[in-house]
Design a protein around this nucleic acid. Sequence first.
DNA 1: TGTGCTTACGAAAACGTTTTCGTAAGGGGC
DNA 2: GCCCCTTACGAAAACGTTTTCGTAAGCACA
Lengths: 331, 331
Amino acid sequence: MPTNIRDLAQELQLSLATVSKALNGYEDVAAETRDLVTRKARERGYAPRAAARNLRRGRTDKIALFLNTGIDYVVDYLGAIIPGAVRSAQGFGQSLLLYTQTDADPEPLRQVCRAGEIDGIILFATHYDQETIDELLASRFPFVVMGRVIEDERVSYVAPDNYGGAYAATTHLLEQGHRRIAFLSRPELDTAHEARSRGYRDALQAASVPLDERLIVPTYIEPNSGRAPTQALLALEPRPTAIFAFHDQVAIDVIREVTAAGLAIPQDVAVMGFDGLRAGWMTRPTLSTVRQPLERIGERVVEIIQGQIAAPGGPAVQEELPVTLELRESA
Amino acid sequence: MPTNIRDLAQELQLSLATVSKALNGYEDVAAETRDLVTRKARERGYAPRAAARNLRRGRTDKIALFLNTGIDYVVDYLGAIIPGAVRSAQGFGQSLLLYTQTDADPEPLRQVCRAGEIDGIILFATHYDQETIDELLASRFPFVVMGRVIEDERVSYVAPDNYGGAYAATTHLLEQGHRRIAFLSRPELDTAHEARSRGYRDALQAASVPLDERLIVPTYIEPNSGRAPTQALLALEPRPTAIFAFHDQVAIDVIREVTAAGLAIPQDVAVMGFDGLRAGWMTRPTLSTVRQPLERIGERVVEIIQGQIAAPGGPAVQEELPVTLELRESA
DNA sequence: TGTGCTTACGAAAACGTTTTCGTAAGGGGC
DNA sequence: GCCCCTTACGAAAACGTTTTCGTAAGCACA
């Protein structure tokens, strides 16, 4: 049985109240007493029971991170985002609680909120239907969406600048002299797809390069989804001289197929990805890409939730963090 | 103000006790009453306050996962291990709490234990000094070490079969006819290094291939740590015909250097990794490797901690999970 | 009728804090 | 000597459960 505040008080000949106040930095306790208490607390290895404290204070200093592990590629981001988020949370005296959630069943999320298990929620890379979002808004429970733009002024989110990234990537390829630039899209990721797609189109238009719809080919969320589309692109006459892939995962398929076709990268076909995963360093040639500030996104999302916790129902914070063009070998 | 158990009781004209017992599956409540209570609870969206429940029951149904994000490569495992661990925990009605921890300062860990914030601890891929381990053992606080073998019969761990994996990898190379097989070691990772190193040596010995100490070259935990050692190996006379890298991260450096030297993989030099990271699929040629069952390790560690929680101070469970040789293109 | 057993429920304690409010002691000003 | 203010502390309520223990009601049995 570890020591509790009562033991401490008894040993110090003080009341519970005074000990508690000393430990929590209240003003109305003599400096001398405070020293005495803190010293004894350290000596006895006292830490207030979290449950009791949470119960009384009505908050837990915990934030939930809801993952949709059903979506395969989420896994690639996890390692990049989590360290930033955890560190940031710890900086606020909070810790991160992990939950998995399937789109189909919002019940776990509801449960966790109502049980007062956490102070706020981070929704990660998942498609939550409008109903869940509305429910959260109605309950005024603090939450922030991560990695995804939500078209609703009341919800906070942090996402990469998908439009700007795609625009920059396409512009770079144009500056390299490319005129036939293909785009491997990913319609399933609706908002990100819309933005990146628009960035691609706008960049072409800004350079007065006519859009060839045959150069826009969809890929889907499944392994090797970039391979067949790449083959199709390479068979076109005239062949595209550059391929901009929706994200790195697909770009890696592209590199494989282009190389297999006996073409040189970037001489015959330049390849550009999106995300900046570590894996991009491992291809040959290494992958030029648009780097998302994943660690920063993790940090930022935790920072933003603080505001939501302090003022539930307050104004939403919507941020699209700048991405950076990371030019390696493939473009 | 969400609904209370008191509200519920009042509305049902029952006592708190009965409502609580109905919801917790106690026997001494009429089936009819139980139905009434559960129905009303669902209707009102009632969930018991976690803090109050934890306080009373003396447990939290939460498990801490301590990460050492200071070590870069931990990040690569995170995405692979976490989904399994979270899902498994949820299966036990528990959730996972994430903390970062630096080797230098065990204070956060102590604090979390003493605050009763969690029921058990998973120590991941970190070098905890004997003092911390001893302290945990003395306190009888449930904990399991993940990814690392601990030479102490009292501590539970789940790790990959490092010895077997290295033995199998080396044996495979031998079966391919290789006689000069280099080993890029990683002395900093002491226990894993010892086991993999031993597997390599034993396999050579079993095949009666003499050990050439010049073929064992250390690498260190830093980016590109495999490049210079590979160059050194390639400069040897006679050149090694196969290189077994301590792990995939290094193997990727090897592939890069070997290719840069104008040598063909696997014809001139075969390359073998260890870990089975997704990144291994992205190299060219794809990396043959020893796959750790990372997801399974995550699950298993959560399962084992259940036993520790049920019987603190009980017998330790030590498991080395089988790895599988994953032959792709590089060997 | 008295005894004993089973069933279903309620009263109340306990979990360990934080925080509000009250108050005693001390000091200064008149 | 009186009043007021500040400082430092303590008593006690409150947070919302779970769980122990007591007991009333109903029934069977002798």
